[in-house]
């Protein structure tokens, strides 16, 4: 090989690498003083219009970071609390709020933005086709006729799963909940790592067209499964529900605390509040916000909810250890 062509190749590789670095620096950039960073769980949705509206009305520049589900989000903030990864946090819920507060990761209070009832959903179409009566209570899920039909989320990894675990502890009592879960297990319940996987892959009534006609989701989910005939393919089982509340807060040691405060106010304001039902399938905390008509037709809130008053910060570890022993 001639040395000139070797040089040519060396030089072109070096030039290519330098070009890559410059473009990388250009694209990722460094933090600017007007930037305000919001860290959220993976299910957070904020439309481009709302982001632009926030930027325009406050003069800040919003950047979004996703950090897994509510649990990973809270833990991530605790692990990095002295040099936080964001200025504000959305998505710590009432199952993790105690942990967040006791670790001092927040500046000021958690402010509730939205709520929803964690309940089972079933696929009406599947039950009609198979001529099986759909279940009306969580206890029925252990009956032989519902064997291998149910998918739930792992409470170790998912706040939806933890919510339901808490509901069973509250509804069935310290003596009953473990045997209930053993029965669920022997009745072939599937455990997924998170809500996305359970709802969008394994549930038969959603776009994933999975194999399980019963899924742990939200009372409001059926409003998102309305088909061409104007009916929802799914319905909620309004027993054993847990009222999940989500919060927003300014993070302690935030680099841009004023921007974070402006952002918190924006998320509590009516423009963002009215986006909750359609983008995140949750009820806005602001009662003056109009709920879409679709919702009034296809969703109900549970008459009675369980578990939301339990002390999660204190008991979470032992609950999860007990649960993991059953599902080990």
């Amino acid at each position: 090989m001639k040395s000139s062509s070797k040089k040519f190749i060396t030089v072109s590789i070096i030039v290519a690498l330098i070009a890559v670095v410059f473009s990388a620096v250009y694209f990722t950039g460094t933090r600017k003083s007007k930037d305000v960073i919001l860290v959220t769980h993976d299910s957070f949705v904020m439309s481009k219009e709302l982001v632009a509206d926030f930027d325009k009305s406050t003069g800040y520049k919003l950047k979004l970071i996703k950090a897994g589900d509510a649990g990973s989000l809270t833990n991530r903030l605790i692990l990095t609390k002295n040099s936080p990864i964001a200025d504000a946090v959305f998505g710590i819920d009432n199952t993790f709020s105690g942990l967040a507060q006791s670790n001092g990761i927040l500046s000021g209070n958690l402010q509730a933005t939205d709520f929803g009832d964690v309940c089972f959903n079933y696929d009406k179409k599947w039950f009609a086709e198979h001529k099986v009566t759909p279940p009306i209570s969580i206890k029925e899920l252990t009956l032989p006729r519902y064997k291998d039909l149910t998918v739930v989320e792992n409470p170790n990894l998912s706040s939806t799963g933890l919510s339901f675990l808490a509901a069973t502890i509250d509804e069935l009592g310290a003596s009953g909940w473990k045997s209930y879960w053993s029965d669920l297990k022997s009745n072939g319940v599937k455990v997924d790592s998170g809500w996305d996987a359970a709802y969008y892959t394994d549930f038969s009534g959603s776009s994933g067209k999975g194999e399980y006609p019963i899924v742990l989701s939200y009372a409001s989910s059926p409003a998102d499964e309305v088909r061409a005939d104007g009916q929802s393919q799914t319905a909620a089982i309004l027993d054993g529900c847990f009222r999940q509340t989500e919060y927003v807060a300014v993070i302690n040691h935030a680099k841009n605390p004023n921007g974070a405060k402006a952002l918190v106010n924006y998320l509590l304001g009516s423009k963002f509040q009215s986006s909750f039902p359609n983008s995140m399938y949750m009820y806005p905390m602001d009662r003056n916000v109009k709920i879409p008509s679709q919702w009034q037709k296809f969703t109900q809130v549970a008459a009675k909810t369980y578990g939301d008053h339990l002390d999660f910060a204190k008991n979470r570890k032992s609950w999860l250890a007990d649960w993991s022993r059953i599902f080990g």
Partner: peptide, 15 residues
């Protein structure tokens, strides 16, 4: 789902 596009992540990786 992602905070950045896959293209940007690839640039991060190359950098």
């Amino acid at each position: 789902l992602l905070s950045i596009s896959v293209g940007t992540a690839e640039l991060n990786s190359l950098r």
